[in-house]
């Protein structure tokens, strides 16, 4: 390079050497954490956790998808039951809702009439079961309403040990 350009080059390098680290440091220092809350206002919390007792945890109820099912009860030996799911992080279906069907029904493509709606499939939200479910065994059905398709039916199980 010719001499004037070499001198300009040196000046450019010195200016960049001062400005760029400062600009970079300012940019990094100005980063905001991803906004979030440690706890929601209590008015917005959907279900006060009344199911204190964990009856059991099973990972074998669903064959196709790795879903852990937890059974809760209001108190030891009494009260209503509730189920809670935790699925793999990548598991997502359009508008997935959960049903309880008593007995060991042969479900193919449509939901039978005796399907009882438990609520939306939501990781770490306990869905209460109806009181009459406690007396008999049944299955959990994961149903995608947007796809109008049964995603998976669990193995039949009883809530209470015989």
């Amino acid at each position: 390079m010719i001499r004037p350009l070499r001198q300009r080059h040196r000046r450019v390098v010195i200016v960049l050497g001062v400005i760029l680290p400062i600009a970079f440091a300012v940019g990094i220092a100005a980063r905001k954490p991803v906004p979030g809350m440690t706890s929601l206002p209590k008015e917005l919390v959907a279900s006060p956790q009344t199911f204190a007792v964990t009856e059991w945890e099973r990972t074998d109820l669903f064959a196709k998808t790795p879903i852990q099912v937890r059974l809760f009860r209001e108190s030891v030996g009494g009260g209503r039951f509730a189920v809670e799911f935790s699925a793999a992080k990548d598991f997502v279906k359009p508008d997935l809702i959960v049903y309880w069907i008593a007995g060991n029904p042969n479900i193919t493509e449509t939901l039978p009439d005796n399907a009882r709606l438990l609520g939306a499939f939501n990781s770490s939200v306990a869905l209460p079961l109806s009181p009459d479910a406690a007396s008999a065994s049944g299955v959990l059905v994961l149903y995608s309403l947007a796809d109008q398709k049964i995603v998976e039916v669990s193995k039949p199980f009883a809530l209470q040990k015989p």
């Binding site: 939901l111 399907a115 209460p128 309403l145």
Partner: peptide, 13 residues
């Protein structure tokens, strides 16, 4: 709004 099939008897909750 798409109705969810099945019975829903939780209004007592």
């Amino acid at each position: 709004l798409v109705p969810r099939p099945g019975t829903n008897d939780y209004h007592t909750l």
